[in-house]
Design a binder for these strands. Structure first.
Length: 270
DNA sequence: CTAAGGACCTGTCGGC
DNA sequence: TGCCGACAGGTCCTTA
């Protein structure tokens, strides 16, 4: 999926097309997503008017007069606004159709994404309830440092755990740790308060830069307008094993943490 | 409570 | 060319 910058880009990309629109029809071609789309889904959502489009962590929230649509893009999901008559592709699982002949179309080959309807406050929904602070809004370095005390898990896994903070995926975890000069395997509890401040700053910088650039394109992300590519934040370490560090020339190393590929410079990161 | 591992899916790529 | 394993941006669940 989409890491947080891609979700934010999707949020901004679809908002002008769906805000204020009434959903006239919901088509579920494949309900078997990460959470099964229930039979009641179309009936609940049909007829609702979208009043706000927001992002919380990597979830998109489409608020309406009667409830909220919670959408997650998983590893391979994308949302596009297309003419409703455009033939659906192999992995176009859900359409939300509007009166103007356009529809919001969810595509997700791996089906790790989801689409859920909730009547209550989405913040208290089980999917969102236990999420930590937003890196660009709430995240506090002192609080993160406090939370890390006694933790032996690698800091990379600590910052990727959404209960500690949201929005840091596998690419930007490696990138932020490089920029902060912290070795990804270092125990979260063995990092100074000062270095947590540096780490939080690095996370904000790298996510902010990626959002500004419009999302990093790797593999199958497709923008909300359906344009395949856009930009590139210069990745310093991710995917660069064996290549020279841009700062010192040492070969970038690859290791596995929590069964995820992790890239780092053994000279710059301690 | 924390930490570690597997599970969920399909597509793509590199090697033989 | 074709097959086969490894790997891919995320979460959630179970086990210790």
């Amino acid at each position: 999926m989409p890491e947080l910058p891609e979700v934010e880009t999707t949020c901004r990309g679809i908002a002008p097309h769906v805000l204020g629109k009434r959903i006239t029809e919901v088509i579920v071609r494949e309900p078997r997503l990460r959470q099964r789309v229930p039979p009641t889904f179309a009936r609940d959502v049909r007829g609702r008017v979208i009043s706000a489009v927001e992002r919380r962590a990597k979830y998109l929230l489409l608020r309406t007069d009667a409830g909220t649509l919670i959408i997650h893009l998983g590893m391979s999901g994308s949302l596009r606004v297309v003419p409703a008559h455009q033939p659906a592709g192999a992995h176009d699982h859900v359409d939300w159709c509007f009166e103007n002949g356009l529809c919001l179309r969810l595509r997700d080959p791996r089906r790790f994404g989801l689409a859920v309807w909730t009547r209550g406050d989405p913040a208290s929904h089980s999917l969102l309830r236990d999420l930590g602070p937003e890196p660009l809004v709430d995240l506090d370095a002192d609080a993160l440092f406090q939370r890390a005390q006694g933790r032996k898990a690698p800091v990379k896994q600590f910052i990727m755990d959404s209960r500690n903070m949201v929005g840091v995926g596998n690419i930007y975890a490696s990138e932020a740790l490089f920029r902060a000069g912290i070795h990804p395997a270092r125990a979260a509890g063995r990092i100074s308060r000062k270095r947590y401040h540096r780490l939080v700053a690095a996370i904000r910088e790298v996510l902010g830069a990626a959002i500004n650039a419009g999302g990093t394109t790797l593999r199958d992300f497709v923008g909300s307008e359906g344009k395949p590519g856009y930009f590139s934040v210069h990745l310093q370490v991710y995917g660069r094993a064996g290549e020279p560090c841009h700062a010192c020339g040492t070969e970038i190393c690859l290791l596995s943490l929590g069964q995820r590929s992790t890239y780092y410079c053994p000279h710059c990161q301690r």
